[in-house]
Design a protein around this nucleic acid. Structure first.
Lengths: 342, 342
DNA sequence: CTGAAAGCGCTTACAG
DNA sequence: CTGAAAGCGCTTACAG
């Protein structure tokens, strides 16, 4: 619903000045409230007063057309109904409004085709930049966006190329915390559940697991189970069943969804945590709080994901063209409960 | 990032026709792919071919400026990081893209000030319509939007006024299902936990509880505990503590957040569900699945919330001006677990 | 069947 | 300190 009402022209007529002057005053008013230089105090005040009286709202489309920027950024996530991403979405949104930016979201469901389509739609909409959680197979599309000099920030995962900014977790460290917690509680047979998607975050989490197992001299027990994103419950169940049989003592989960699936599976098997199986989860999740045992988990700084990504985006948008790419690596924390053993 | 590249003008030059013709062809191409009437087959094809070759993307801002509509709708929710709302958000988003619409979200945290501010920002952005989850104190603002003839659909709650479309749950029925389940399992002392906010959905849920208790001849035990939205854990804990002492047998929770808080509180008290306390929760929630006992809960048709709200919005936007308001009432379902007793 | 022209509301050099 | 004018890219009557 555009303002069918007051335009800059109405104000100009009312004030007896040119529309250029009105435009000038309106803009300087917001930018430098104090020094309304170049326009006489009085004229300026009069224009502002009239604008207010006439309930003037600038027409966004006109400004966009003229300036070539929309003050909108597109954010493409894996799935906005996943708690981890909706938390981030919330932060991005709140912060964007402060910058006077608007955000539009899209969810890929880890499908490169959907991602490409969203990118196309968002670019057609004229977004000033894109914050993207890349999925498997989206590397080429991402590369094209970067090459087209569209401001771009990757989040949660990177695609291992130079020149693209990203905000990621220190994933190796995250998992080392998890493995260490289990090892410290006396477990030796510690295994990991991850996805079969070759995403940077998953790869790094696996690497963190392997490395820590080695450092702990437990590498003979190293085993990673890679789950299909589309058949989580089914496959996690099977892994858990077999693990209990094989006498596995501890499990590290690579994501919150896997953690929840794992706990459910253990429940169904009647396996007690931590007595019969010790586990460390990933991400904060309100669901963990309902579990019979308090969960030990790796906590990601969700707010920082959002705020760092947005801040980076703002830098790129307002950026000098020789703006370098920046990678922000966030630090996870271990929250200790009982599920990992004493 | 606007297309700094191909415009309708470039295509016109290349094809040796006027820009008007190009515009005409581009639009009719999408609307009536078969009958490209009024333009010769050949010219039409040539223009389309050139457009494709030059990678033409229409400039959204220009079209918006001209047509006075943005193909964007604003959705104002309570909190997009709450699972119930993020599920709805996801549905709205997916569906909106099919209509070639874009969605921008905002969260109020049940704060009327934030709501008003979001409304202002969204209207300034030029949204074609607003889907809003109203909060306490927002009635006047909502009324103004409606009076300004801005397409409007309320969701989850209404404000009890004529002439405003909304999509809500049959809340009385929802809670009657819950109370009946508990009564059928043999409970008499059934109480309810709700919010102290006087929102239509809460009010109706309370009414459903009262009415059903009466019908079951249990009204002597009727008791509603109203929680402050900002101090949920603390107050729910206290209610649960006192309830256990008083020998309450069953609890109906009015929302998913309250359900989770209640289960956590009972855990801390060492009260077993359903042996020592029977409960019925609200909303589907993955967290429920981690609880030691399967939860009985009232399920809301989340997808329908999103799709009905969006469809209504589309009707309003494309609407004949004498478009009447429509209220869609959705039907909840009881999902039976063990928490409500046998 | 196709073209010339106005105009959506704003910003931005350019004059003065 | 202020104004006249061009132009952002598109659509839409209006002519022919």
């Amino acid at each position: 619903m555009m303002n069918k009402k007051t335009t800059i022209k109405d104000i100009a007529a009312e004030a007896g000045v040119s529309i250029a002057l009105v435009s000038f005053v309106m803009n300087n008013q917001s930018r430098n409230p104090e020094k309304t230089y170049k326009v006489s105090e009085e004229t300026s005040r009069r224009i502002l007063e009239i604008a207010k009286r006439l309930d003037y709202h600038p027409n966004n489309a006109a400004r966009t057309l003229r300036q070539g920027k929309t003050n909108t950024i597109g954010v493409i996530l894996s799935d906005i109904s996943n708690k981890f991403f909706s938390d981030i979405a919330r932060c991005i949104e709140d912060r964007a409004y402060k910058y006077n930016y608007t955000v539009i979201f899209g969810s890929t469901d880890e499908n490169a085709g959907k991602l490409e389509n969203l990118v196309k739609v968002f670019i057609d909409k004229g977004v000033d930049g894109l914050i993207i959680v890349p999925c498997v197979g989206s590397e080429k599309c991402i590369r094209q966006i970067a090459d087209a000099r569209i401001p771009l920030v990757l989040m949660d995962r990177h695609i291992g190329e130079e020149g693209i900014s990203s905000v990621v977790l220190n994933n190796r460290y995250a998992v080392s915390l998890a493995v260490t917690a289990l090892a410290d509680s006396g477990c030796s047979k510690i295994e990991m559940i991850a996805y079969n998607m070759r995403l940077s975050n998953i790869i790094d989490r696996e690497a963190g697991y392997r490395q820590t197992m080695k450092e702990m001299k437990l590498d003979e027990h190293t085993a990673i189970h890679r789950i299909d994103y589309r058949r989580i419950d089914e496959q996690v169940s099977e892994v858990m069943r077999s693990a209990v049989e094989r006498g596995v003592e501890g499990f590290v989960f690579a994501t919150n969804t896997l953690t929840i699936a794992g706990l459910k599976a253990l429940d169904r098997l009647g396996t007690a945590v931590p007595e019969q199986m010790r586990i460390v989860g990933f991400d904060d999740n309100e669901a963990f709080e309902l579990y019979r045992t308090s969960i030990t988990y790796v906590s990601q700084p969700v707010e920082q994901f959002g705020s760092e990504a947005l801040d980076l985006m703002m830098k790129h948008i307002s950026g000098k063209e020789h703006m370098q790419s920046i990678t922000v690596t966030l630090k996870p924390q271990l929250v200790t409960g009982n599920s990992s053993g004493k």
